[in-house]
Design a protein around this nucleic acid. Structure first.
Lengths: 236, 236
DNA sequence: ACCTGAACACCGTTCAAGT
DNA sequence: ACCTGAACACCGTTCAAGT
């Protein structure tokens, strides 16, 4: 007879530690999304009772902060000596790369309640790129605010669809009903409809390119900052 | 002996309806925050069993969407005929006013999974202000993306502190420990520290003015859009 | 030092039943 | 038509106990 080890568990002989808990949480989130990272589910995954996790993690907030910290710590640093706009660009687009690998990261950053060392480190590094270009800390400060969450490589957008909810994206209604709905939309929301039509003429599928929008706005802002810098802008 | 009506309930004689449920939810969120709006808590508030709500609301998502819709429907419309930048400005700052009255709104909008009619209406109205200024729908589209959540009057910011968590804001550590921490910060995060010092010289309390940051970025973007418009910009 | 068991105070939502 | 009761499958977290 087999010894009675827990059935579905991957519990190993070595005791748990914080790093193991956090990286298991990251792996779980990568696989099943942030919502699946509950203390109970994660514990089950580690072959351990939920309360065992509390020896390595203060509470759930602490766990999520540690997950963010782990990913952010791995951000690539661009070579030093870049022109400042290029430096900011590369750090921001580097953050964006991590986001594509860890789709839950955006939600975790938005929910985060602590500024961990890695998080502060990234903010400091971005500020440092500005400062290396000779911008005043006054302007750097307001530029960072203007970038907002874009320094993490994402931008909450009014037009973007919400995160896929697991379920299939809804059965397409019959064609005639669809046409009626579009006509109603065009009447009630003429400008939004006009945008949709305009976009459809550019991109065959009507989808709009999130990466393009991100870089468009990033570059728009960087240019605006540069202009203020040249003009000797100060908030007084 | 009193008839056995539920003790803490405010249940009235008239039957519930959707509007009553939704506005009770808004009032509850105003008072205790969005986290307090659970189906069970809200039902208790209405003197009704949780399941009673499901006759008026499809599920919790639907409830939150209806809460957002109710507030957004009340946005003030600026007078027509404004210069387009002023029109956009006023609609965005109007949305911001509602946000100050309903602090939970930001979180609800970010979590929202449906575009309700009022929500689409606000987006359409903002797009309409741009279009009235003669901007191409191509440029309007990308400008709306650049504004992002700012069209709802808020901007997620990397520097801003997280929403107050009810608990007191942590006891101030002893002065000498505080000094040691600041020294460590200045060493590890020199640029962020420099910003903090710079800010402190401008604002005695070191706090930074969120309204200023919001309008700073809004105006920066509007100016950038105007510049692209004048230059005949097109995404090709 | 590290993990377990049982419990507490919650969630959203289902189903079948009541009036 | 509208509301109720009981149940299901979850949450985060506490405390005292085991090894």
């Amino acid at each position: 007879m087999a010894p009675d080890v827990p059935a579905l568990a991957t519990r190993s002989a070595t005791p748990l530690n914080r790093a193991a808990v956090v990286s298991a949480a990251v792996a779980l989130a990568d696989r099943e999304g942030l919502a699946a990272v509950s203390m109970r589910h994660l514990a089950g995954e580690l072959g351990v009772v939920p309360m065992a996790l509390y020896k390595h993690v203060a509470d759930k907030d602490d766990l999520v902060a540690a997950m963010v910290d782990l990913v952010v710590a791995g951000y690539a640093a661009p070579p030093p000596g870049l022109e400042w706009r290029e430096g900011v660009r590369q750090r921001v687009l580097g953050a964006r790369d991590a986001l594509l690998e860890h789709p839950w990261l955006r939600q975790a950053i938005e929910a985060a309640t602590q500024r961990t060392p890695s998080v502060l480190g990234h903010m400091d590094a971005v500020a440092g790129e500005f400062a290396a270009g000779g911008l005043s800390y006054d302007l750097v400060h307001h530029s960072m605010h203007a970038l907002g969450h874009r320094i993490w490589g994402f931008s909450p957008e009014a037009f973007s669809s919400p995160p896929a909810s697991g379920a299939p994206p809804a059965p397409a209604p019959p064609a005639e009903e669809q046409a009626a709905m579009m006509a109603a939309m065009a009447q009630r929301f003429p400008h939004i409809s006009a945008i949709a039509v305009d976009t459809a003429t550019r991109h065959p599928l009507g989808a709009c390119d999130e990466q393009f929008e991100f870089e468009f706005t990033l570059d728009l802002l960087l240019e605006a900052f540069a202009r203020l810098h040249s003009a000797g802008w100060s908030s007084r």
